[in-house]
């Protein structure tokens, strides 16, 4: 169970500022994705989770650079490999789906071509084989009329169908790991549930590891085995789904849990965490959450908290833990 597909070590990402200087956006984070697990990363937008995922795929914007650390994929440091090797891995061993399936699909290309594209990039298949595979995949991801869907253009599909197409596209080469960057955020609740079920099923049936990113701890909890909580470019708490949900230690995690809408809180205003995530260029306190933390103490403004192991997989970085 403990084979790691991805090992991230001290990953540090910098964003080029307008004045040319580098601001640290992701600060020395380390974690691993284990074979067959669904790992969630949760945090408010702007905390660095998307950047982290993009860096794993080698799809960082031009103004973002990996400054330090390693991304080990089955022992190979992805930050050091050639572009050719990177292209070999992308789509085949590692693939990604996004929040916006509409814009993430080429509007002028039929679904069939887009779904089969990874196969054409990573192997040689006949037209017929491509068609059959794409058809099978669409059936697999639960599309009702897969033949019609193959002939369609993205704009002719519903949001849920588009995301299913994206998933089919991402899994057609049976990757070891699937990165999912807020894949359900743009969908309505019912569709969201279907997509989550689909991802879970893929994970179960094919043992595909999934790195699932969301700002919504509720969604994370429904699908993930383990969870990383990120704040301002740092992992502030990590643990199994149970650990995080039942025994959150970091005040940020607690805040996130409080803001999950639940049935018994129906009708009441959702408590949210006051303040906002500091932006990349803002000066940070030793504990970046301290300014928003309702349990902050004098030491929090003076000294960076150490990370304490609370349980086997449960770690939190807070003076109070």
């Amino acid at each position: 169970m403990s084979e790691n597909i991805l090992e991230i070590k001290d990953l540090t990402l910098g964003v080029t500022e307008r004045d040319g200087s580098m601001a640290v956006a992701v600060d020395h984070i380390s974690f691993e994705v284990r074979a067959g697990e669904i790992l969630g990363i949760v945090g408010e937008s702007g905390c660095g989770k998307s950047l982290t995922v993009m860096s794993l795929m080698g799809l960082l914007r031009e103004d973002v650079k990996a400054l330090e650390g390693q991304i080990l994929f089955q022992g190979e440091d992805l930050l050091a490999v050639s572009e050719e090797r990177r292209r070999e891995i992308n789509g085949k061993d590692m693939s990604i789906i996004y929040q916006e399936p509409m814009t993430s699909l080429n509007p002028l290309m039929r679904i069939e071509r887009q779904v089969a594209e990874p196969l054409r990039l990573h192997g040689s298949y006949s037209r017929e084989e491509l068609h059959q595979k794409a058809l099978a995949l669409l059936t697999e991801v639960g599309i009702q009329d897969p033949e019609a869907c193959l002939r369609a253009y993205p704009h002719q599909l519903s949001g849920g169908m588009r995301q299913r197409v994206m998933i089919a596209m991402a899994t057609i080469c049976s990757p070891r790991i699937l990165l999912a960057d807020e894949p359900t955020t743009a969908l309505d609740v019912t569709t969201q549930a279907h997509v989550l079920d689909l991802l879970k099923r893929i994970n179960r049936e094919y043992g595909t590891a999934i790195l699932f990113i969301s700002h919504d701890l509720g969604v994370i909890n429904r699908i993930c085995d383990r969870v990383l909580v990120m704040y301002a470019g740092k992992i502030v708490e990590a643990g199994t789904n149970r650990d995080i949900l039942d025994a959150p230690c970091h005040e940020y995690t607690r805040g996130l849990i409080r803001s999950i809408p639940t049935r018994d809180r129906k009708g009441k205003e959702l408590p949210s965490i006051p303040g906002r995530v500091p932006s990349v260029e803002d000066p940070k306190e030793p504990c970046p959450f301290a300014p928003r933390c309702r349990r902050a103490m004098e030491i929090c403004h003076r000294e960076a908290p150490a990370c304490t192991r609370i349980d086997q997989d449960h770690i939190a970085c807070c003076h109070l833990c």
């Binding site: 080698g58 799809l59 070999e88 992308n90 996004y98 993430s104 699909l105 509007p107």
Partner: peptide, 10 residues
């Protein structure tokens, strides 16, 4: 975004 998707496909 679709260009990013294509890059993601390799």
């Amino acid at each position: 975004d679709y260009v990013r998707t294509a890059r993601g496909k390799g």
